[in-house]
Design a protein around this nucleic acid. Sequence first.
DNA 1: CCTACCGATCGGTAGG
DNA 2: CCTACCGATCGGTAGG
Lengths: 203, 203
Amino acid sequence: MANEPLTRGERTRQDLMEAAYRLFIEQGYHGTSMRQIAEEAELALGGIYNHFSAKEALFVTILDAYHPYHDILPALNEAPGETIEAFVHAAADRMVSALEDRPGFFNLIFIEIVEFEGRHLPTIFNQAVPQLEALLQRFQQTPGALRPLPLPVLLRAFVGLFFSYTLTEVLMAGSFPPDYQEDALEGLLDIFLHGILPSTGHA
Amino acid sequence: MANEPLTRGERTRQDLMEAAYRLFIEQGYHGTSMRQIAEEAELALGGIYNHFSAKEALFVTILDAYHPYHDILPALNEAPGETIEAFVHAAADRMVSALEDRPGFFNLIFIEIVEFEGRHLPTIFNQAVPQLEALLQRFQQTPGALRPLPLPVLLRAFVGLFFSYTLTEVLMAGSFPPDYQEDALEGLLDIFLHGILPSTGHA
DNA sequence: CCTACCGATCGGTAGG
DNA sequence: CCTACCGATCGGTAGG
């Protein structure tokens, strides 16, 4: 959070990116016009092209700067927890906080999948590999035995937990009695933990 | 599959819907033009408006006709299986087949979430409630004990399994050694089953 | 960084 | 169901 002074140009670039981010996740890529972005950033249309060569270049920059890996993976890796259970709960708490801060968190990924057919994902993912590996190490090194599971599967199950939570929430929102879904995330975590820990002794 | 003869108008409407479906899931809503749809359906632009009053009405009709609940939920409900384990595996197989038949299956949902802010989802979901309830009954009635879990959580974990599988596949595609992700779905299922079944006696 | 403009394309309609 | 058209808006650029 060290706010080094930004040059005028850097400031404008920041404003543009924030404006574009907000508009993209609300309206999609093709649903957002360069004029809307200019207006939201309080800039004339032509001014955008001093900072970004084209609309797609702007999107790619945003995808790169705002995708979930940047915020979420470090938050997960820094979660405390001396047992697997404690760690998973702490990590989930952090994930939920991050998700609440930015309700449109996954939208960027959905836009990329639908409107760009996932073209830019491999690059993004490769940046995240070190963080993902650290996360795996954390699972392995934290005391408390795990069932013998392939590590990528463990990782996919864990990450997928939050896709499951978020998407089923959106899909089923307001259609189940509210008291029924109060602790849905805890329930999902419970299934996950029970699923990855050895049977013995676990409730 | 009973192909009753369609009137000329019904045939055209069908063609339009199929063309629009293909284009929407490939390019998104705002990324697809009415002219593209007309061309793909081999119709003049103006002809579309004999069948649909506006572009959004066309999308809503498509969302209603092609969303996953129509194909997938009945397929799940009809899956065989005399134990929970057998049922979950059979249901997962059917889900995977459905997903492979239509790789853009979830895209419709993503478009709805991003480009319409989920506006049309409640209606859709309400149609699916009976099917979802049948699925829950199936879980409850199939022999083989379950851990005490809230039913909506069980349902969300099960449905979420396929979001997890599909999305983590897309996100991590080609970045893990291929042999590592061969049986990812089986691994996820294993965690899920282990997570919902009582500890005793289960591997 | 803005003004003023480009050609192309958009969703939708009138009229037959 | 098509032809021909509407006004509006699109991404992008020249020129200063």
